[in-house]
Design a binder for these strands. Structure first.
Lengths: 167, 167
DNA sequence: GGGCGCATGTAATGAGTTACATGATTGA
DNA sequence: TCAATCATGTAACTCATTACATGCGCCC
């Protein structure tokens, strides 16, 4: 549902074609989500069939024609409904890394610490990326803020665990 | 990979059958992960074929026979490798809820606030559940601590956003 | 006697990914 | 000329879920 919500939300602000949507999401929204191109095309076709968006072919002189999408009133209704559902529910995040943490004691302390130290740079990089994210229109800045908070809290936690393993 | 790591890690501590593993995960580890029964059975078969675990049939007087699994040396090696890989990498969490946040400004402030207020109880309940989680053996307590931190930080953030929408 | 718990699975479905296919343009 | 970018998709595959199937024992 979130991917549909995302695509509709973007199309609500501006008509776009598939490639453009996928590029935008993967370039400008990489700190919080992603969407592979085949998935984007698939979803756009599905939503067209559902009547949520309408396709407009814009002929290009040389490149393949662009299929520009525009949201319909039905799409706007679906967006409103999905948005409300999304805002009023809490969907817990999954931490793939916690599984390793659960079995930390299978390793000697020093080695456990070394491995966690190797985890640190990717986390720190993600935090930097979120901090460097350009200010965005509307409430998108809330997402950036949330990511920054979350990643900062994660880094703090990781450092604390590393410290505990160091004495 | 995390599910295999989880199953191997548990089997390393104690031989168990499929039903038992699935029940344990969904009862005692619900605050951080889950595993549906068919998935558990499927993975156990796969890992048996891979030689990571060995099956021992324990006949029951009345109920269906139990297929009790024991980790093999190859399984232990796989566990060690996956554990190290898991600990040294950072796998960013996905927040399904952030998509809604990104389009908060599509709603009147008061309504946005109301919907976020409806989100709060589930989050608070998750935090309570993590706080009430029984102390576990070994480093499992690290996972609980991590969840508590994360959820507390999430609740703080949510309350801040709600406050901002209230003035 | 009816539903729940134990214990195992299969089959169908779904969501998303990777790899592949096409073909023109632009820049090094 | 060779790679990258633009622009669209299809096909095969993976992973996990839901729904279904079986059958006994236990408790109310």
């Amino acid at each position: 549902m979130e991917r549909e919500l995302l695509l509709l939300g973007l199309l609500r602000q501006q008509d776009m074609h598939g490639y453009q949507l996928a590029e935008f999401i993967n370039r400008d929204l990489a700190y919080c989500t992603d969407l592979k191109k085949p998935t984007a095309y698939f979803l756009l076709n599905k939503m067209t069939e559902a009547g949520w968006i309408r396709r407009e072919i814009v002929e290009q002189s040389s490149r393949p024609d662009r299929q520009v999408y525009r949201i319909t009133p039905e799409g706007e209704a679906a967006f409103q409904q999905m948005l409300r559902a999304n805002l009023s529910s809490y969907d817990p995040a999954r931490f793939a890394n916690d599984v390793g943490l659960a079995f930390l004691d299978a390793l000697p302390r020093a080695e456990a610490r070394d491995h966690l130290l190797r985890r640190r740079p990717s986390l720190a990089a993600a935090l930097e990326q979120a901090r460097a994210a350009p200010a965005h229109s509307g409430s998108l800045h809330l997402v950036i803020e949330h990511q920054q908070r979350h990643l900062a809290s994660e880094l703090e936690w990781l450092d604390e665990v590393i410290t505990r393993l160091s004495d």
